[in-house]
């Protein structure tokens, strides 16, 4: 019992740092979810390009970033680039690395959904006189996004979980702070159990938000 109270006291003592870390975790997750979403849409749009050249570049982009382990990418930018005279802050590196990675995944989800659409609707829009960008914005994207809500919100969950690897490039987010707590009192189980509970709670919130989104945007059948 006394173990728990010691742990609790340490937790309370370090609470400002922990909350700061949690804030940085949420900040990184929110930013990469947004930038990865937006870049994913751009990549998806380009993957529909009439130019074979653009399409093959985009295919290369998607395979490269899906195939590359995120940690390698982050280390490459954070520890590798300074050798070329480019030093970036941990936050910038994390946002860059995650954005490229997450965008590749999101573009792949959107492409999968697009393969399930009936191309005749886009053709009808073309026949009405809409241009390519209008068809994308008004017809293709709204349909594809609706179909992709589960995959896209699942990606947000992955972003939250994966954000913990950013501590390896000196980004002191929530998990980095919890490791510090564990190191001060050697209560490893409690510290990491507490971390697990926090991540689970956050994931549950995302799941609830995802369900609400789906209910709001689902098409009647």
């Amino acid at each position: 019992m006394s173990d728990w109270s010691i742990f609790r006291d340490d937790l309370i003592e370090q609470m400002p740092l922990i909350l700061g870390g949690l804030g940085k975790t949420l900040e990184l997750t929110a930013i990469i979810s947004l930038t990865g979403f937006l870049l994913g849409i751009v990549v998806f749009y380009l993957s529909l390009s009439p130019s074979r050249f653009v399409r093959s570049i985009i295919r290369g982009y998607i395979s490269f970033f899906i195939g590359m382990p995120l940690i390698v990418l982050l280390f490459l930018i954070y520890y590798g680039m300074p050798q070329w005279g480019i030093s970036l802050s941990p936050f910038t590196v994390a946002v860059l690395g995650f954005t490229f990675n997450v965008a590749a995944y999101n573009a792949a989800y959107l492409t999968t959904a697009h393969n399930g659409l009936d191309p005749v609707e886009a053709e009808a829009a073309r026949a009405q006189g809409f241009n390519r960008l209008q068809i994308f914005k008004l017809i293709t994207l709204p349909q594809v996004l609706r179909l992709s809500i589960p995959a896209l919100t699942n990606q947000v969950i992955c972003n939250l979980k994966d954000s913990s690897v950013a501590f390896l490039i000196q980004y002191t987010e929530f998990f980095a702070r919890m490791q510090e707590v564990a190191a001060t009192n050697f209560q490893f189980f409690k510290a990491y159990f507490f971390s697990a509970l926090v991540y689970l709670a956050l994931v549950s919130l995302i799941v609830l938000a995802s369900r609400a989104l789906e209910r709001r945007y689902i098409l009647p059948t």
Binding site: A124, A125, G129, R146
Partner: peptide, 20 residues
Amino acid sequence: IRALRQSIGFVFQQFALYRH
């Protein structure tokens, strides 16, 4: 071409209504 298409109404076999 887009002006041309706007002056031609096209009704498709599979209706092609925008489902969303």
